[in-house]
Simulated scan of single mutants.
Amino acid sequence: MPAMKLSHLPGIAGFILFVGVALFAPLLSPHAPDQVIGIAWDQPSMLAPLGTDNLGRDLLSRLIWGTRTSLSVTMVTALVAFIIGTTLGFIAGVMGGWLDQLISRVNDVVMAIPTLILALVVLATLPKSLGVIILVLGLLEATRILRVARALATDIAAMEFIDVARMRGERLGWILLREILPNALPILIAEFALRFVFILLFLSALSFLGLGIQPPTADWGGLARDNKDGILFGIWAALLPGAAIALLALCINTLADWLLGANTRAWGARAHD
């Protein structure tokens, strides 16, 4: 078990709490997420501890279900982005030559277009299903990961143990999985945490603009969009998903810092041995 500093405990406990809320949403939610239980933007009560939203639905229940939706979609999107970006980046960094140039130039062209504008254009023309949203966001975020993975693979591929593996006749897949990936993993862990937060913000922004997760499905961006007009009347319902995003970002950064330090110490000890 990696050593854990006292400063890591709140962030890790917070992350576990968010995951627990997402996993046990049906048990924790007092009401169904679409059930109307009162008037719009009603005050907190025993029936609705956080009050109601713009349609009279329980705000706490929608926030709980929104946690499950936002975290699950963000996690799947981050995994898709990392599988695509890391694979292409490693291949470009190890193989070099025309294949590296092709992958890098295509990646540069996509990155030259503002990500939000490109996502808005693409999603405006495609069905707004969860699969389409995950694929579009995953491909867009994979361009950032690709550059990091390529830089790591290029540096690692120049080391002697890679030449030894090639002389042994090891295949490309073996070199990528057994030599490149373990040595690049500490930085990729930190990059995964960073990309997770960016994807969460990106997804929430698209939902806020009406091109992300569609109603009546509850998610943090949609919750902010539905209740944004309440701010004019002193209703703070729209601020809850923003606070949740900020807290989750802090928790994930703390978790990544702990894992990065643990992995760095472990591989440092292995190299010393």
Rank of each mutant, 00 (worst) to 15 (best):
residue 55 L to G: 00
residue 109 V to T: 13
residue 80 V to S: 11
residue 121 V to K: 00
residue 38 G to H: 00
residue 184 A to I: 05
residue 46 M to I: 02
residue 161 F to L: 05
residue 258 W to C: 14
residue 81 A to V: 13
residue 177 L to S: 04
residue 233 F to L: 14
residue 159 M to W: 02
residue 167 M to E: 05
residue 127 P to T: 02
residue 11 G to M: 11
residue 75 M to Q: 04
residue 222 G to M: 12
residue 57 R to W: 00
residue 149 A to T: 10
residue 152 L to W: 08
residue 98 W to L: 10
residue 125 T to L: 13
residue 83 I to L: 15
residue 183 N to P: 04
residue 29 S to Y: 10
residue 105 R to Y: 01
residue 186 P to N: 09
residue 30 P to T: 03
residue 99 L to T: 08
residue 205 A to P: 09
residue 95 M to V: 15
residue 229 D to P: 03
residue 146 L to I: 01
residue 252 I to M: 13
residue 125 T to C: 11
residue 14 G to L: 13
residue 226 D to I: 04
residue 134 I to T: 13
residue 185 L to D: 06
residue 28 L to G: 05
residue 191 E to L: 07
residue 31 H to F: 13
residue 177 L to K: 03
residue 55 L to Q: 01
residue 191 E to R: 13
residue 63 L to Q: 10
residue 263 N to H: 06
residue 81 A to H: 14
residue 213 I to P: 06
residue 13 A to V: 14
residue 103 I to L: 01
residue 235 I to Y: 12
residue 45 S to G: 07
residue 22 A to W: 05
residue 202 F to V: 05
residue 230 G to K: 10
residue 45 S to L: 01
residue 31 H to R: 11
residue 85 G to L: 04
residue 233 F to W: 12
residue 47 L to C: 01
residue 94 V to G: 00
residue 76 V to Q: 14
residue 225 R to E: 05
residue 172 L to W: 11
residue 87 T to E: 01
residue 53 D to R: 02
residue 269 A to I: 08
residue 60 L to C: 08
residue 122 V to Y: 09
residue 114 P to I: 06
residue 169 G to V: 08
residue 94 V to E: 04
residue 137 L to R: 13
residue 105 R to G: 00
residue 215 P to S: 04
residue 91 I to M: 11
residue 110 V to D: 00
residue 30 P to N: 08
residue 159 M to I: 03
residue 179 E to H: 15
residue 160 E to W: 03
residue 211 L to K: 03
